[in-house]
Every structure is written in structure tokens, then in C-alpha cells.
Write a protein that binds this DNA or RNA. Structure first.
Lengths: 188, 188
DNA sequence: TAGTTTGTTAAGTACAAATTGAATGTTTCT
DNA sequence: AGAAACATTCAATTTGTACTTAACAAACTA
């Protein structure tokens, strides 16, 4: 019978940790893909996520095997969406960066920004659109077929307005963090 | 002084309606851009949004000045995210499609799907990762520096797990529509 | 069953985005 | 102030994506 070697005893713990990190880095970058960042940028964040101290552009470059300009622009994108911060490192002239690891903050910021922009665009357009349609509807000289079309459009936009009012509310709760009062984080 | 013409009386109501629709179509396609569909696909949805009856591929093609295969693939993408439905039209051999106009449904479905996928990917990876790390941590032969690293990683992933448990909850509430109980739609 | 109409797949092209080495700015140190 | 060390911008190339025409497949009509 083949000798059984218990890898968890003689095995390389280092290798095991690295394997775990590789797996999580893949998962993180794949999902960040869904959050409006390119796979390369996502992979950079995921890599930084497992560095427990700030890292420099040169270290990023080495870790990912990419160019420094690429790291420079990627890390800026991550700063733009507030999940990476620049930190000052004593004794080093290089810029250092550290990943924001609190996903709750990430959620609040990402959806806060995203929804806010959408809500504003819609509410502005809807207001104008409904005013215009109202004029058509209330004009006694408008012929019947057109008035009907205008009324259909108007009602449809009114439904949209109700939705965007709701989304506006959700956005405010998300940005302020109050959403975690409405939908609490379960303790275990 | 220049003669003032009151467009709301002598003006073309038809033109006014079309102008409103053009504006809203722009707004809708710009924002859908933020929802993982290309601008062309967003524009197709926006166009269908103002058709108050089902339309065919040929009508889409004419409305947007694009090719039919393009309409075919675009409309399928819209079906995939459940905001367009195929409907049967009596007496026509052509397929007809109609836009889902309830944005609340759209919200539930879109974020339900999106978050669900993300949550599943994470929870599976996190479970495996934490199991592996636990082995390293509990192995008495692991040297101290590695154990420390493993523990840091473990705790970080535990924080992530709490977040994804919360997102899982939010996802369920969103898919089921219960979210509208937690965060009610204001009546006016 | 032959001939149309309609929808989809496939191949090719044009366009847009990402990446890099080289060049240019900018800060820090002496 | 001048030099050295970093970071960023720029131009050019590569890579990837979206769209179109053309060919194909399926469904209907007569």
C-alpha cells in the first residue's frame, strides 16, 4: 500500500497560503469585473487586498508583471472609486498605496455614486418631459389622437418618476449608511 | 418689435411629443449604459419604451437605422436581462417584442441576478479559503511568521464573509420584492 | 414539395480600449 | 540650484469588441 503523506504536516504551509490567495484573487477580480472596472484593475485591487501593508508602484509592477504606467493609471482608477488610498511611508520617497478592505464602505460608495448620477439625470429629464407633455395635453387645439399619445407617455413617465423617487431614497440611505439600520447586518 | 408666436398654440404638437421622446430616449440609453449593456442596446430599449405596442425586428431596424442581425442580438440581450418580452401577434409571422416598463421589476431582477451571482461565487470561495487557512493555523508545525500571515488573511476573509452574508440577505429581499416593505415606496 | 419569408450564425471589417517604451514633469535631497 | 528618483503623459502598437454583409437554417405558404 502506498505510503500516505499528510500534506498538512510535512506540506508547505507557504504554498497552501499562496494557493488560497490565488483562488481569492481570481474570485475578487472576476466579480470586480461586474463593477465597472477592467479585469486588470480588478486584479490589482485583489492583489493589494492580501498585502497587509502599503505597497509601491514598483511592487505592483513586479507582482502583476505589467508596466509601471499601467500600474499608475490602474491605481488611480481604484482611488477614484475610493477603494485604494495613498499613504505616506516614513523613509520612502515612493508613493505607497493600501487597499480599503471594508466591503460595506465599498458598497455604500459605489452604489451611492452610481445611483445618484442616474437619479439626477432622470429626475431632471422627467420634469422637463412632463411639463412639455402637459402643455400638449392641455392645449385645446391638440387633436385627439395626439392627446391620447401624450397622455400615455405622460402616465408612463409618472410611473418612472415614482420609481426614481424611490431610488433617490435608497441612494440617500446607502450613502449615509442608514441602509444598515433598515436592513441590519446579522451578528452570529 | 418682433411678432411673438405662441408655439404651444399654433405649434406642432406632434413635434413637441417627438422632442420629449428624443430627450427621454437619450437619458434612458445613457443610464442603461451603466447597467452593463452597450449604448446601442440601451437605445433599442429606450426606443421600445415609447412604443405602446409590440414591434418587430424590421421596425426596430428602421427605427434605429441598423442591421437586422444587430437587432436580433440586441433584443436577445434585453430578453436576457428580462426587460423585453416576446409576444405573439395575431396574423403576423414575425416575432414581436414589447418592453417591460415597470422599473421596480427591472430593479428587482437586475440586482437580484447580479448580486446573487456575486454572492455565490464569494461564499463558495470563502468557505474553501477559510478551511485551508484553518488547517495551516492549527498545524503545530507551522512556523510562527506563516501562522501570523494566515491568521491575518483568515480574519480579513471573515470580515468579507459577514459582508457577503449581508449582501445575500439584501439579494433575497430584492428578488422577492420584500425590499419594498423594508424601504417603502412613498405615496404622494 | 418548391418557393418565400423570417431569424440566426459566421466571417470579415472598422472602431475603441488597453498596454507599453520613450519622453516629459515633478518632487526630494544634497 | 542642480542632480537623482519617481510619477505621469504621449504616441504607437496590440488587443478586444461591435457591427455589417453574406450565407445558412427554420418555418410557413401555396
Amino acid at each position: 500500500m502506498e505510503e500516505k503523506r499528510n500534506d498538512s504536516h510535512n506540506g508547505n504551509a507557504q504554498e497552501k497560503i499562496e494557493q488560497v490567495e490565488r483562488m481569492m484573487i481570481n474570485t475578487i477580480s472576476e466579480t470586480m469585473d461586474l463593477y465597472g472596472v477592467t479585469p486588470a484593475v480588478g486584479r490589482l485591487y485583489a492583489t493589494m487586498y492580501f498585502k497587509h501593508e502599503p505597497i509601491t508602484l514598483d511592487e505592483m509592477k513586479d507582482a502583476l508583471g505589467m508596466s509601471k504606467p499601467s500600474m499608475s493609471t490602474s491605481v488611480r482608477k481604484l482611488q477614484d472609486i475610493n477603494i485604494v488610498k495613498k499613504v505616506w511611508q516614513k523613509g520612502s520617497r515612493k508613493d505607497s498605496f493600501i487597499a480599503e478592505k471594508n466591503f460595506f464602505n465599498y458598497f455604500s460608495h459605489f452604489y451611492g455614486m452610481k445611483w445618484e448620477r442616474e437619479v439626477n439625470m432622470y429626475l431632471v429629464s422627467l420634469k422637463k418631459a412632463q411639463e412639455q407633455l402637459k402643455e400638449v395635453i392641455e392645449d385645446p387645439e391638440t387633436d385627439e389622437a395626439l392627446r391620447e399619445k401624450a397622455e400615455l407617455d405622460y402616465q408612463q413617465l409618472e410611473d418612472a418618476r415614482v420609481y426614481y423617487r424611490w431610488l433617490e431614497k435608497l441612494t440617500k440611505l446607502t450613502k449615509s449608511g442608514e441602509i444598515f439600520d433598515y436592513i441590519p447586518v446579522d451578528e452570529e
